[in-house]
């Protein structure tokens, strides 16, 4: 599962990407570089309006870049129409609001939607849908109507629908932002499983706890890249974190509060486990 940058071509190979909304004065994304390799989990963070969602749409081949030196998604050129259409098959995009992603009147039909669009034979769709329902624990809900589902169930259905189409990489745009704690845990567990299976994931989030576990973090500031590197490096730079309007993971906040009480820790912990180790409660 270790990234092998030198052997396989990256799943996303983006350089000098620009995007501007019609009628806008400034670029929503400017001169952005991004490389994502097989098996990587890359978190993208940034304040509202920093261009995170725009990036998700561009990566999924759902918007046309204004310009780029090169913009490849799974080998497809995002600068041309055919490339974007091809990218939509390989790149799965999950959006924030589960309600606005469910098309069909019941769970199983919604999971089938992408495969129906790709004109798979009915028997193959049926097998794949069964597989997805089992994987996301939705078997008992297969005939359930969307408005009878909880937030977490809706988002899991949407996720099942996204990866029912075999994907090479996933882009998740704040998938837990509109969920209650139970729903958030359900979705995070599903994401963790996909990561463990080696699926590359670009995870857009405002939750620093969710970003803390990423292989790499990219921070956006008004459409430009303000930081790219490991999570520890970002959160260690207090001034940058403040400027970007971010925060610290809960464990980091706790460590800082302890430091104010005179119990400073050598390294800033990013997860609760790290915090417990740093405090000597665990090894």
């Amino acid at each position: 599962m270790s990234p092998s940058p030198d052997e396989t071509p990256p799943l996303f190979d983006i350089s000098g990407l620009h995007y501007r909304y019609a009628g806008a004065q400034a670029d929503a994304l400017a001169d952005l570089d991004l490389k994502v390799h097989e098996g990587e989990f890359v978190a993208v963070v940034g304040a509202n309006g920093s261009g995170k969602s725009t990036l998700a749409r561009l990566l999924g081949g759902l918007e046309k870049p204004a310009a780029a030196r090169h913009a490849l998604a799974c080998g497809h050129d995002l600068l041309v129409e055919d490339g974007r259409m091809a990218a939509r098959r390989d790149v799965g995009v999950l959006f924030q609001n589960p309600e606005n992603q469910l098309v069909a009147q019941c769970v199983e039909d919604d999971v089938a939607f992408g495969l129906e669009n790709l004109a798979w034979p009915a028997a193959d769709i049926g097998r794949r849908v069964d597989e997805m329902l089992a994987r996301f624990g939705l078997e008992d809900l297969r005939r359930r109507e969307p408005h009878m589902l909880s937030g977490g169930q809706k988002q899991r259905t949407a996720l099942a629908g996204v990866i029912a189409v075999p994907r090479r990489v996933l882009v998740l745009d704040e998938p837990t932002a509109m969920l209650d704690p139970v729903g958030r845990d359900e979705v995070l567990r599903a994401v963790r499983e996909m990561r463990d299976e080696g699926l590359a994931i670009v995870y857009i989030t405002q939750e620093m706890d969710e970003a803390a576990g990423a292989d790499r973090v990219v921070a956006l500031e008004r459409g430009t890249q303000a930081y790219a590197g490991d999570a520890g490096g970002l959160f260690a730079d207090a001034a940058l974190v403040r400027r970007l309007g971010l925060g610290l993971p809960a464990a980091g906040e706790l460590a800082l509060a302890l430091a104010e009480q005179g119990r400073g820790l050598r390294d800033l912990p990013l997860t609760m486990d790290e915090l417990l180790v740093a405090l000597g409660y665990a090894t």
Binding site: R57, G60, L62, R88, F95, Q101, V103, F113, V162, V165
Partner: peptide, 8 residues
């Protein structure tokens, strides 16, 4: 957008 993302 979500429909296009699912290849509609």
């Amino acid at each position: 957008l979500a429909m296009e993302a699912r290849c509609y």
